[in-house]
Design a protein around this nucleic acid. Structure first.
Lengths: 149, 149
DNA sequence: GTAATTGCAAATTCTTTGCACATAT
DNA sequence: ATATGTGCAAAGAATTTGCAATTAC
């Protein structure tokens, strides 16, 4: 999907719910929805400033909450002590590789995991809902001694 | 391994490192090492009080840090907003099933995951260190309409 | 005795909330 | 116009840290 379209989707969501389309909301949505990374709230605030916009921290949190609620953004917790957010792309389920040196996040998909987790859940009497897999390691750049980004 | 032995191991660790064996440290270790659950700091504090002991919150945090450092306890983050800790039993690597209704945690092991994660990491240029898999679902008790524990 | 720990309270970090002022429709 | 959002600063929750009093060895 075109990144611009996704921002438009958020506008529609706001209009449909009779919520004001403020420039802060649009700016924050643009940063988050057009990024291909997993941004922390701090990242979002920094990106905003870098593009000449600004919004209070509370507004950033509140807008992200809206974006999550309407399904355009997904919340992630990698156990770093804060949350990260990524646009909900068409990828229905994917896993994460997390570089323990620079924090880079890489996504991948492996159908075997669906199968295995469903099976394991059943074995233990659980009705499987979803799963979360994070592989911790050192990315290619950090292995070759590149400076942490 | 006998639970008592594990506490003895902690004593040895302290002695070997010329660290005082205080009753607080031993009490906290006993609670954490003899539990078969995944305890939060609050859980530990409550269990301490329940058994007639007490320790300042800071001491609990500091002792748990020691227990993690010496490898007798493992830290877990299930994205609940706080950490949980469990004794490092002989199970070298295991995964978790988390009941989204009652919070119950069940452990399991599946060697296929080692293989898959190592392979996937390599494919993306990462040097695999470890992984974390949590399957979210509804446990047998909650499925059969039992009251949440 | 002396060095390390303990406990408390203050500080930190991430996040949420209350409220006067500003803005979208 | 008016309902809602915004920003600030205060509140919260989990965790860490500084420091005087205490304890292990």
């Amino acid at each position: 999907m075109d990144p611009g379209d996704v921002v438009e989707r958020f506008r529609e969501y706001l209009r449909d719910h009779n919520l004001p389309v403020t420039h802060q909301r649009v700016d924050i949505a643009r940063v988050l929805l057009q990024s291909d990374r997993h941004l922390s709230v701090e990242d979002v605030t920094r990106e905003l400033r870098r593009s000449g916009h600004r919004a209070g921290l509370a507004t950033v949190y509140r807008t992200i909450e809206l974006l999550v609620k309407c399904g355009l953004v997904v919340e992630r917790d990698f156990g770093e002590g804060f949350k990260r957010f990524e646009p909900a792309r068409d990828i229905p389920q994917h896993e994460h590789l997390l570089c323990t040196t620079c924090g880079r996040v890489t996504e991948f998909r492996d159908e075997r995991l669906e199968r295995i987790t469903t099976l394991v859940a059943e074995t233990h009497g659980y009705l499987r809902q979803r799963h979360r897999l994070v592989i911790h390691g050192v990315c290619a750049a950090c292995r070759s001694g590149a400076p942490p980004s």
